Computed example of a mutant assay.
Amino acid sequence: MSEVKRLPAAEPHLPMMMGMVFARVRERLAAEAPELRPSQLRVLEWLPPEGLTITELAECAEMSTQGCGQFVRQLDALGMVEVAVAAHDARARRVRITDRGRAALARSAEVLRACDEAWADQVGPERYRVFREVLAEVALGGAGESAVGEQSGSARGSVRPSG
């Protein structure tokens, strides 16, 4: 059976094209860094070394506290995070990344870097650099260039831990 190259009947809009790109990224992550699903990676990559409460993490990841709590439970069961009572409030839980979580993040970052390199090869390094700058400007509302180069992840969130 031959592979069919499917193209949309309508002119592709941005969300459709982004979905196509995300599908490729998900496939590559599943093959090369299977320990985390992209949805789990989305939560884990917001954790600075000192940790965040679930509420702070949910705000950073732009999700509900309940949904974030479900991801935190999954990540805890995988040994990617540790959850403890927050020092400032016995009702709150502070989430910190573990060595296993850092290793999974590093592997995922390598896969994502390889995707960047492949796309830069496909369209040319200068066009890809401009694409990333424009995308960062649109996505981050002008905070773009400095955030795109940020590799550690510890300065990305606007929410910082309290107490």
Rank of each mutant, 00 (worst) to 15 (best):
D76R: 14
C60W: 05
G79M: 11
D99W: 03
E82L: 14
M80R: 07
W46F: 07
A86I: 02
A58M: 04
G79R: 08
G69N: 09
A87I: 07
E50I: 06
S64K: 09
C60F: 02
S108K: 06
A103N: 09
V81M: 05
V81E: 01
I97K: 06
V43I: 15
L78A: 12
A87V: 11
L78F: 07
E110A: 15
D89H: 08
A58L: 04
T55H: 07
L75M: 10
M63Y: 05
A109C: 09
T65C: 05
M63F: 05
E50K: 10
R42E: 15
E50M: 09
V83C: 10
V83T: 13
L41H: 10
A61H: 04
C60Y: 04
L105D: 01
T53S: 13
M63L: 12
A84L: 11
G69F: 00
A84T: 14
R96D: 04
M63R: 11
R42P: 00
D89C: 01
S108P: 06
T53H: 05
E110V: 12
L57N: 02
Q40Y: 03
C60V: 08
A106V: 11
A61N: 07
A92R: 14
E45T: 06
R94P: 00
V95T: 03
A90Y: 01
E82I: 14
G101Q: 04
D89M: 00
G51M: 10
M63H: 04
E110G: 12
R93I: 00
V43H: 03
R91H: 14
I54R: 05
A86S: 14
V85S: 14
G79S: 09
V72G: 03
A58C: 05
S64V: 06
L57S: 04
E110H: 13
L75P: 05
D89A: 06
Q74K: 10
L75G: 06
R91W: 09
R91I: 03
E82K: 15
D76E: 15
C60G: 06
R91F: 11
D99V: 09
S64D: 10
I97L: 08
A86N: 09
C68G: 02
V85M: 12
V81F: 05
A86E: 12
A87E: 15
C60D: 10
V85A: 14
M80F: 07
F71G: 01
R93L: 07
R102Q: 12
T65A: 14
W46D: 01
R102E: 11
E82R: 15
D89E: 08
L41S: 06
R93H: 10
S108H: 06
A58E: 03
A87N: 08
R91E: 15
Q66Y: 12
E45L: 07
P49V: 07
H88F: 12
A86H: 13
E56K: 00
L75W: 07
W46R: 11
T53I: 03
L57D: 01
I97E: 02
R102M: 10
T98S: 14
V85T: 15
W46H: 12
Q74W: 01
M63I: 11
L78S: 10
T55P: 00
A92W: 04
C60R: 11
L105V: 07
A106H: 14
R100Q: 13
A87D: 14
I97N: 00
L44F: 02
S108E: 06
A77K: 11
T65Y: 11
A87Y: 08
T65M: 12
A77E: 13
V83N: 03
R94I: 06
A103T: 13
